[in-house]
Write a protein that binds this DNA or RNA. Structure first.
Lengths: 128, 128
DNA sequence: ATTGACTTTGACGTAAAAGTCAAATTTTCC
DNA sequence: GGAAAATTTGACTTTTACGTCAAAGTCAAT
């Protein structure tokens, strides 16, 4: 239990390079422990990496990902800060809703392209 | 009817710079007409720009967008090409489905953050 | 104790997608 | 038809997110 992951274990699992994980550490996104110089990743780090990569896939910048992580690490306590955060959440939600719409439209187009391909194949390859 | 758009009309409408539209032209994504040196955009160009920007929002590269546009411009006729295209469509679909899932998860998290904010605000600001 | 695999650090490089700036046209508007 | 505003071109710069070495350190196993 409470196993450590080596850096290459994680790079293999997630299909990223060691450079990428070191970069995320330099950028303050993760803070693996050290034995001597060697980085030791706990499963909490591993989960964090999963979230970072999810953020990356949907086009968040490093700065945005860091911001999100920090909100989780120490949520604001003061009312003004809370309201500010809620406004930022609203904005992100709008952005993501737009993106989801874009994706759905594009998926539909892909369906059309595929159908067109099938139709054309049927036309051509009557005897194929 | 059959109006021309100037470059700045379009930059204002879409919130991009002239540099961006010129860049898209250099990259072969759009081909506005010319009167002398001045670019004249037709509504077909305008629609194409909308599609380009949608592609951009969901994280497609210029190269990918160009590829998509070209498929629309001249769809492949040969069976091998058609099958290849269908494979690429499959891959894109997988990618987009993953992205949609990522977005939905993130939207849920945003909901949680917002609720936490509201709860906290209620705790603090009993008399606010 | 040596080989070989892995890891770290640091410096420099790179590709994509524009931004910026200057100079030369061009167009528009009165 | 001439000033002001808009547009073009070209060159150079910037930012982000890593990639690519090179050199040195570390660890495990033989």
């Amino acid at each position: 239990m409470n196993k450590y992951y080596t850096i290459t274990e994680l790079t293999r699992e997630f299909g990223v390079s060691t450079r990428t994980l070191r970069f995320y550490e330099d950028e303050g996104l993760i803070h693996p422990e050290r034995r001597g110089r060697t980085r030791l990743f706990r499963s909490a780090d591993r989960r964090l990496i999963m979230e970072i990569l999810r953020g990356r896939r949907i086009g968040f910048t490093i700065a945005e990902i860091r911001e999100i992580i920090q909100v989780y690490r120490d949520p604001p306590g003061e009312a003004g800060q809370l309201r500010l955060l809620m406004k930022r959440v609203e904005e992100k939600r709008d952005e993501l809703n737009q993106k989801r719409k874009d994706i759905e439209e594009t998926l539909e187009e892909l369906n059309n392209v595929e159908e067109a391909c099938l139709t054309r194949l049927a036309e051509i390859g009557v005897g194929t």
